[in-house]
Simulated assay, not measured.
Amino acid sequence: MKVYGDLQSGNCLKVKMLLSFLNIKHEWIHVNILDGETKTAEFLSKYPNGKIPAVELDDGRYLCESNAILGYFSENTAFLPKDTYLKAKVYEW
């Protein structure tokens, strides 16, 4: 799995931390948004919103937006409660 991001971004850091807490192996690929690296045709073909963090799953699917990524990886773990109110509180992250 590849994760595209910049650790100076809080949203990217949240994803990096969750993957670390869950011991999920990944390749971190630094992306410099100031140099336009999220606006290339190749990046936009995978992530049309042109934002980081972004994930390329091992099966070739793509995820973007930090909350979607966090929700995907935290499902069925202690980081995402089953109780709907508590789950909503988590999504305030």
Rank of each mutant, 00 (worst) to 15 (best):
K82A: 14
G71L: 07
F73H: 10
G5Y: 12
G50P: 07
E65P: 02
K14T: 01
L63M: 06
I52Q: 13
Y47F: 15
G10F: 02
P81D: 11
L22R: 05
F73M: 05
V55A: 03
F43V: 06
K2T: 04
G10S: 10
C64P: 00
Y91F: 15
E92C: 13
L86H: 10
E75S: 05
V31F: 11
M1R: 06
L22M: 06
K14D: 03
G5S: 13
E92M: 12
Y4P: 07
K46A: 07
I52L: 10
K46G: 04
P48R: 05
L86E: 14
L18C: 05
L63N: 01
S66A: 14
G50W: 07
Q8H: 12
Q8Y: 11
L44G: 09
K46S: 07
S66Y: 07
D58Q: 15
L7G: 01
N32D: 15
F73Q: 06
L44Y: 04
A68Q: 05
V3E: 00
E42K: 13
P53Q: 05
K82M: 13
L34T: 05
V3I: 15
L34K: 12
K46M: 14
I29V: 15
N76H: 12
N67T: 08
Y62H: 14
I69G: 11
K16S: 01
G60V: 08
I33W: 00
V55E: 09
Y91M: 15
D6A: 15
I29K: 09
L22V: 03
G50E: 11
K2S: 01
K25S: 14
G60W: 10
V90E: 03
F43N: 00
